[in-house]
Each structure stands twice: as structure tokens, then as C-alpha cells.
Design a protein around this nucleic acid. Structure first.
Lengths: 338, 338
DNA sequence: CTGAAAGCGCTTACAG
DNA sequence: CTGAAAGCGCTTACAG
């Protein structure tokens, strides 16, 4: 029978499609008997309005475009969950694109979403993204963007971030308090605002603690970890070998821990290990991994709320929100028993 | 300047919108000078066709709807990756919905996707889904569905599955070969085809090995694991306590391992532990976790390929594909040193 | 309370 | 080679 349209119903009932449209839309000015018949028939035929037509008419699609680095990254998977929750609640659909940490793909995603006429965008940039003109173009078309987590700096849009600087400092200070003096860090790509903040938090913590900041303890990586065992070997080969490692994320921390243990080092007595993201697994490894918990779903939900609000009210004021992360201390850094 | 339409370009160049449309579509029958001017102006104005209009005209949206239980489940995150790869390659967009393992939400998702006029559906059902009429309705509307991984049985559509029965049997036989005689299993919801097959594989392996199948070793769970420590305590409280646990997934296995270790049991000497899904972390825990690897991205990609093919050719023949999983043996089940 | 008409942005037979 | 017209399915001022 194919898909039923308003015209089918009109024809079957001998009324105009205008009337059917009004009845279905719940307008008051329709004869109640006519309305009853229309509603009943629509129900019987399982009529579903063709939103494509509606979108064309209304000049908007009730769809939000989302660009994230990777779905397999649990942080973003959870953020997307928060976004979808808010979006659906507000009557929006969501199209999700993955940049796979590639700038070129990110640009393609942007194009795809614009072609599909999304009403607004939620973006967390790729690890490669070191310039931002492609987003300027979008704003010029009056399509609002809200950045979340991996945000872009010099651009006038709303953003939702977490307190990377503060939490990274807090984590480093915690390591110092545990007696660590030679703290190595796996720093992210420094064109990313987040990564810079995290490194800065680390450095300031060392500085405040009167510790020297040894450049050789800082290694730069991207988020696609390769050759971690090489890195581990490099670190322990140093004359002044680190007594703590602040990893770029939990997977890196866990792999590092595994490699070090196999080399015969004790965690945390010889080397303390700090993760980032607080994945569920942290609790169940040996020793349990200290990490930093981000309310990813809240970050996503907040970003979506801001965007939906801008869309509904037309208000274009720039909002910046910070969602606080928390340091979750576990055995992998617990060197002082009290 | 808002969004540029074909009419804007036509007006600015003093030609008809038909001609603009033809030039942009690359039709050969356009004066080359006219074409040049049109293309140039379109480029300059950053013209992007409004696909919404196109979709209305063409009666299709070039969009695939995907319903999965959860994005935070890495298996599905990877499957979605495979789907997107194939879909984008073939010029399709993807709208992803999560059922959150809830039947009611799954039905809502279906409604949303139909309202948005997706051309076809890729579905992996929720853990609660124990009847399937909602999918019949979709087929009646001539919208093709391809099920993947968690498939629906008595329904005439294409499916992509993995060999749950065989691999579960192989895993169980491996445990037997390692000397395990009292193998406990965490079985999934038995209204799911996959879960039934996995349990069946386990039982048949025991049977073939001449081992008795003790009902008390079988516990039924859903995929949202709660109170695993209680389960662990229950298992070790038995008189004939299990010497192996075949967990429903890796997270369950890892938590189980953690709890058991804390109770003082040695893995695998006292109790061997088998996971399911082969998450990256399996390699880095202590002992490394034996698990079952599914090519999730391949499963997703295969399902998408079948769907896209049906959409492009109109061919409605039912295809069933099986993508084989592999048993990855690691320390958590390695009891016989040779 | 109801219908005819216009219009959202595009494509494509039909004429010329 | 080009334009006018119809049509995809819907909503909504405008008349009555």
C-alpha cells in the first residue's frame, strides 16, 4: 500500500487536504465529526506525516549535527548519549559523524551535515585540527555551533568545557603529595586547547611544589596510541627514571602499567600511574587505577541544551560553561598509607 | 546572506532555474559558456543544494536508520563505525538511535526513523525485545530491514550474525581441555536468539565431553550488570564450587576476576575466567583475559552493504551471512603449561 | 467551518 | 541548447 499521504485521506473522506491537515494538527476550527473521521482513518491507515515535506516548508529540519572524533572512545559515546537525550526530548533528531581524529574527515563531515541542512551543530574537534576556518564558514551561514570538550578558541560561539587545567594540576599535586618527585606526563597534541591546558596544569603544579620541570619527562602523543611499550622502555632507561606517569588516558595508563609490571616494577611503589577518563575498568585492575572522572553525558547534555535553546529562542549570545571533573584516587597512586 | 538557492543563481545570471539545475547536475546539454558562469558563481556563493527538496522530489532520503542497544557498548560502537563507512561510501547518511536495551524505546526509535523517512533500517534488538510485531509493520511499508548481531528469527529479512553457537562451544571445550570440570556460565536473556545459541553451545560442549550439566552453574543476567559481587559470592559458596566461569562479556569477566582475586582465589589455577568481546583491555589485565573476538566492524559493514545493495537494485531476496568470531586464548584460562 | 492557491527548492518530461 | 510547467507532501494566509 506504500506510504499514506494527507491527500489519500482527503480523497477517501471527500474533504480537502487542508481540512485533513488542520484536523491532524489539532487545530480547533474543524467540525468535530469531520475531525473524528479523519483521526480515525489516519489511525487505521497508520498515517505518518512526511516530515521531509514539512522541513522543506518550514525551512528547517529539526535535526542537530554532531561531529566527534570517535564513537569507540567511551567519553564521546557517553557525550553522545547525553546529547541524544536532550535532543529527542526537545523534538530534534541527531546525525552523528566521526572525524576519526582526522582534519580532512572533519571537513567532509561538516559538508555532509550542511548539505543535510541541520539546524545546528555540536562539535568536538579532531586531534589534527589546528586551524578553524572551516567553522567560520558555517557561522557565516547563520548556523549555530556549540563546541564541547575539545573546543576551538578564537571563535565566537558557545562552548562547554571541563576544567582541564585545574584537574590536571590537582592530579599532579596529588602525585607530589604521595612522594613522587619525577613525574612523567604523556601530553596530547599541543594545538589542542585541552591538551595545552592539561600540560600547563601539570607544569604549574610542579612549579608550585618547587620541583623542577624536566623536559625529558614530557612526551607528546596523539590519542591513537601506538608503541607504548617503546615509550615505557624509554622512560625506565633514563638515569633518573620517573617515579610517576601521568597518562593521556586510561587505556594508555593500563597498558603502561601492564608493561611496567612485566618488567618487574611495582605499581605504585616504584612507579605510580595516573589515568584519565575513569573508565569502568579502572576499578577492576590490579592495582585499581587512579583516574579523572568527567561527566561526559552532562557535558554533552549541556551543550545540546544550549544549542536547542539558541535554536528555539533565536538568542545568539555566547555562553561558556565549565563542567567540573573529579580526581578519583585508587591504588595505582596510593604510596602513603595512613 | 542566508542560504543560496538555485533561483538566486538563475536570477543573478539571467537564466532559468532549469538551466542552473542542469549545469549543476553536470548534464551535457548546456552551453559551455553558460555552464562555466553558473559553476563559477555557485562556487563563489558556496552554493549547496538543499537536499531536503531533493528528497521530497525523489521520494527517498538517502538515509539509513540504525537502532542499536547502546553506543557505550564497544561492540556496537565498532559496528556503527563499519556501517557509517559503507553508508557514506555509497552516498547514504546514517541516523543512529539507541534503545538503551529497552523495548519501549526501541519502538519509539522505530517510529522516529519512519517519520524521518529513512530508506532502510539496520537493527540490533534490545535485550528486552521478546516479540517482533513492530518490525512487521515496517516491512509492510516496504522499508527493508537488515538485522545484525542480535537478530530476529521468524521474519523474512536479511541478517548478519556471528557464529555464537560454534564459538561458545569451542570456548567451553577449551575450558574442558584445560581441566575444568565445573564450568559456570552467565547466560543472557533467553528470548534472544544469540543468548540461546550461546547457552546451547555451552551445553553441547559439556555433553560431548561427558560432563554433567549442572543447572546451578547457569545464571541468567541481562547485559546491564549489577551485583556481580553477589553472584561471585554465590558461586564460591557452592559445595562443588565452579572451577571456571564463562562470563557474558569482558567487563563482567574482569569484575568477576577482580572480586575473586580479592577473595584469595587464584586465576586461572583455582578458577579460570573466560570473557566475551575481546576488548582492548583484555591484553593488559593480570592475568590477561581469554576472550572471544568478533569482527564488529565487519558485521556492521556487511549488514550495511546488504541493505545498500537492496536499496540500489530493488532486489528483495533474503540474504543471511555469518561472520566468524575467534577464540583468543590468554592467561586467564591457561591452566595446562606445556 | 472549509476549500483553493501559493510556496518551500529541486528535477525532469515536454515544447520549442 | 533553453524555459515554462508540473509535482514531491505539507502548511497557512486568504476568501468565502
Amino acid at each position: 500500500m506504500g506510504r499514506v499521504t494527507i491527500i489519500d485521506i482527503a480523497r477517501m473522506l471527500g474533504v480537502s487536504k487542508s481540512t485533513v491537515s488542520r484536523a491532524l494538527a489539532g487545530h480547533s476550527d474543524v467540525n468535530s465529526e469531520t475531525r473524528r473521521k479523519i483521526l480515525q482513518l489516519a489511525q487505521k491507515l497508520d498515517y505518518q506525516p512526511n516530515v521531509v515535506a514539512l522541513h522543506l516548508k518550514q525551512q528547517r529540519t529539526n535535526t542537530l549535527g554532531v561531529i566527534i572524533p570517535e564513537t569507540v572512545n567511551r567519553f564521546f559515546a557517553k557525550a553522545v548519549g547525553g546529547i541524544q537525550q536532550v535532543a529527542n526530548q526537545a523534538g530534534y533528531n541527531v546525525i552523528i559523524c566521526q572525524s576519526n581524529e582526522s582534519l580532512a574527515t572533519e571537513k567532509m563531515n561538516l559538508r555532509t551535515l550542511l548539505t543535510n541542512r541541520v539546524d545546528g551543530l555540536l562539535v568536538s574537534v579532531s586531534g589534527e585540527t589546528d586551524h578553524f576556518e572551516h567553522f567560520d564558514m558555517v557561522l557565516k551561514k547563520d548556523i549555530p555551533i556549540v563546541f564541547f570538550d575539545r573546543v576551538v578558541e578564537n571563535i565566537k560561539t558557545s562552548k562547554v568545557v571541563s576544567n582541564n587545567y585545574e584537574i590536571s594540576k590537582e592530579a599532579t599535586l596529588h602525585l607530589v603529595k604521595q612522594g613522587c618527585r619525577r613525574i612523567a606526563i604523556m601530553a596530547g597534541p599541543q594545538h589542542l586547547y585541552n591538551s595545552r591546558n592539561r600540560l600547563k596544569g601539570y607544569m604549574d603544579a610542579l612549579h608550585e611544589s618547587g620541583l623542577e620541570c624536566n623536559e625529558r619527562y614530557i612526551t607528546y602523543t596523539d590519542f591513537r596510541l601506538k608503541k607504548l611499550d617503546e615509550l615505557a622502555r624509554y622512560l625506565v632507561s633514563m638515569k633518573e627514571k620517573p617515579d610517576a606517569i601521568f597518562a593521556i588516558n586510561d587505556m594508555a595508563a593500563l597498558e603502561m602499567m601492564h608493561v611496567l609490571k612485566n618488567m618487574g616494577y611495582r605499581i605504585p611503589e616504584d612507579i605510580a600511574v595516573m589515568g584519565f577518563n575513569n573508565e569502568a575498568i579502572c576499578k577492576f585492575v590490579d592495582p585499581p587505577l587512579t583516574s579523572i572522572d568527567h561527566p561526559a553525558d552532562e557535558i554533552g547534555a549541556t551543550a545540546a541544551t544550549i544549542l536547542v535553546n539558541q535554536l528555539k529562542t533565536g538568542d545568539t549570545s555566547v555562553i561558556e560553561r565549565c563542567i567540573n571533573s573529579r580526581l578519583i584516587i585508587r591504588g595505582s597512586t596510593h604510596r602513603i598509607k595512613n
